[in-house]
């Protein structure tokens, strides 16, 4: 729509009077139909360029910062990195982390005997990851968290702790060291976006895939 400058930095958007063909209604409607039909044909003969994704057969790959379900990382010797310092639960705005600390009799190290995250309360803000001074909690790119009971939304140590050799690379939100030069994957729905076929490939592990199936 045409604009008129009425003052520096201010423009007025004008209403155009309808032309005869617009008033006559039919030519414009046909024009609109034609436009829509062009889209239809283009999509019909170019299925690859479609902006939609056939989830769940095909899945979006989110960026390396995606804030999905959490994991607790492990040291080489197999103990969890978490030292039950309560920093994450203090920083959590949703108050959804419950920790109980225990003491390792041998090393005198503190460690969590209970570490529960209520995923229904969690707002996936990533503050717990930012708060952890021990590199112990990461967020994954796992975004499929459907459950059938409320109790199952509370994930504990058994679901969260991953083995020491768990690959960190395809992970989501985690503490970044120094300069960030990782590329994001702002693919959107456009053509050439990063998508992958389901099921998950080998190099895309998800921690404890059976968490949401059994009790």
């Amino acid at each position: 729509m045409p604009v008129t400058r009425t003052a520096p930095g201010i423009v007025r958007v004008e209403r155009e009077a309808m032309t005869l063909s617009q008033r006559a209604y039919l030519p414009q409607i046909l024009g609109g139909m034609l436009r829509t039909f062009r889209h239809f044909l283009r999509n019909l003969f170019n299925m690859k360029g479609l902006p939609t994704i056939s989830y769940p057969e095909v899945k979006r790959v989110y960026s390396e910062r995606f804030r999905g379900r959490h994991i607790l990382t492990t040291r080489e010797d197999g103990t969890t990195r978490c030292v039950a310092c309560y920093m994450c639960s203090t920083a959590c705005p949703a108050e959804c982390i419950t920790i109980e600390a225990g003491e390792d009799q041998r090393t005198r190290e503190k460690f969590p005997v209970r570490y529960d995250i209520d995923l229904l309360r969690c707002i996936f803000c990533g503050y717990c990851v930012d708060a952890c001074p021990e590199d112990a909690i990461y967020m994954t790119r796992d975004y499929e968290m459907s459950i059938d009971t409320r109790a199952r939304a509370v994930v504990g140590l058994r679901d969260l702790v991953v083995p020491p050799d768990f690959p960190v690379e395809p992970m989501g939100w985690r503490p970044y060291y120094g300069k960030m030069d990782k590329r994001g994957t702002a693919g959107g729905t456009g053509i050439g976006q990063p998508i992958r076929e389901a099921p998950y490939k080998e190099e895309m592990p998800i921690p404890n895939p059976d968490v949401y199936r059994g009790a």
């Binding site: 910062r65 995606f66 967020m139 994001g184 702002a186």
Partner: peptide
């Protein structure tokens, strides 16, 4: 999707912090 590549979440990015941003933008921002 652009916001997600910066912050890790789509609709509600929580990307800002008091005093700046949570992390730097990705290289292809």
């Amino acid at each position: 999707a652009l916001a997600e590549s910066c912050s890790g979440a789509r609709l509600l990015p929580t990307y800002l912090r008091i005093g700046g941003l949570a992390v730097d933008v990705p290289a292809d921002f």
